[in-house]
């Protein structure tokens, strides 16, 4: 029997599996999105990101497990839930024959709320007002993506779900989008953003969940995941008689090249530093891990 989420929980995946014929797109996924946070959903192409998003937005019914969105079953109450949500799909091939403004009006009417932020968003995302009356088929990929973002945010939603939002956007507009998302967060909105771009996630998200082959492989605060990540260390000793470092906690992948030793350290580096105190070290280089290395280390572990 699933436990109903508390008021602070916006989305709650419990043991969610989705089977498409012979393919298992999601495998017993557990995931929580808390109110007021920005969660980055990371994974390579085909990992199951879009399937998870379509399940939470009520487009796909899970094969097993439960998905609660704002305390309601996401499949059974999809229309009711959608009133609170702004959704940017991965697709941008929207009604090609219609003009941008006609589409924004149409979506706004369907949303049933005034597009209070439309003008501001169009200006900030640098969407030329003259283009609004043109058919969408004349838009570049970037413009179509901006239109997609405006339709999702124009009614000031309390929950924002974005599937690969930065695709086709130039770096300046990406930065503006992140600023906008942070502003939404500061107003109390909750943001769920999928991406395969690690930099995007690192710049804007409080917490991340990594998915690969349909399973969540890591989840937590961005800073904690980075702290616990594997980092590369290069030590230059004074002579070729290098010490055996393999017994030190967290040390792995040791490669000795004359007086230089290269190795990886997972977790705290203090045990290594302690051991080196008694050694004659000429130089020490420690690479600060970033989300790329966190992601790659988890991804490689999975592949093995």
């Amino acid at each position: 029997m699933p436990v109903l989420p508390d008021e602070e929980t916006v989305i709650d995946f419990t043991g969610v599996t989705k089977q498409f014929r012979s393919t298992k797109a999601l495998d017993k996924v557990n995931l929580i999105l808390k109110k007021g946070e920005i969660l980055g959903f990371l994974g390579p192409n085909g990992a199951g990101k879009t399937t998870a998003i379509r399940i939470m937005t009520g487009f796909i019914k899970p094969t097993s497990g439960t998905v609660y969105f704002l305390g309601k079953d996401a499949w059974l109450n999809r229309a009711e839930i959608a009133a609170q949500v702004g959704f940017v799909p991965d697709s941008i091939n929207t009604y090609q024959m219609s003009s941008g403004i006609d589409l924004l009006e149409y979506w706004s009417e369907l949303q049933g709320r005034d597009p209070v932020l439309r003008e501001e968003l169009l200006n900030r995302l640098d969407f030329p007002s003259s283009a609004l009356s043109r058919p969408v088929r004349t838009y570049s990929q970037g413009m179509a993506k901006k239109l997609s973002i405006v339709q999702a945010l124009q009614h000031d939603p309390s929950v924002i779900i974005l599937d690969e939002p930065t695709t086709s956007l130039d770096p300046l507009v990406q930065q503006t989008l992140f600023t906008i998302l942070k502003e939404f967060k500061s107003k109390g909105s909750t943001v769920f953003m999928s991406s395969h771009n690690l930099n995007d996630v690192q710049r804007v998200c409080d917490r991340i969940a990594m998915i690969n082959n349909g399973s969540i492989i890591a989840e937590g605060d961005v800073s904690k995941l980075i702290d616990n990540a594997e980092r590369s260390v290069e030590i230059k000793f004074s002579n070729r008689n290098t010490p055996d470092l393999s017994k030190i906690t967290g040390v792995a992948n040791i490669v000795v090249d004359n007086e230089i030793v290269r190795l990886k350290v997972k977790g705290s580096i203090k045990h290594l530093l302690q051991a080196l105190k008694t050694q004659s070290v000429d130089d020490l280089a420690i690479e600060r891990p970033n989300l790329d290395s966190v992601f790659l280390s988890y991804y490689e572990t999975e592949e093995e």
């Binding site: 229309a79 799909p89 991965d90 697709s91 090609q96 979506w107 049933g112 339709q151």
Partner: peptide, 15 residues
Amino acid sequence: ETGDILFVLSKPISR
């Protein structure tokens, strides 16, 4: 096929 439906059904409208 075009993905248009994702924009429409993400609004509070029943299928």
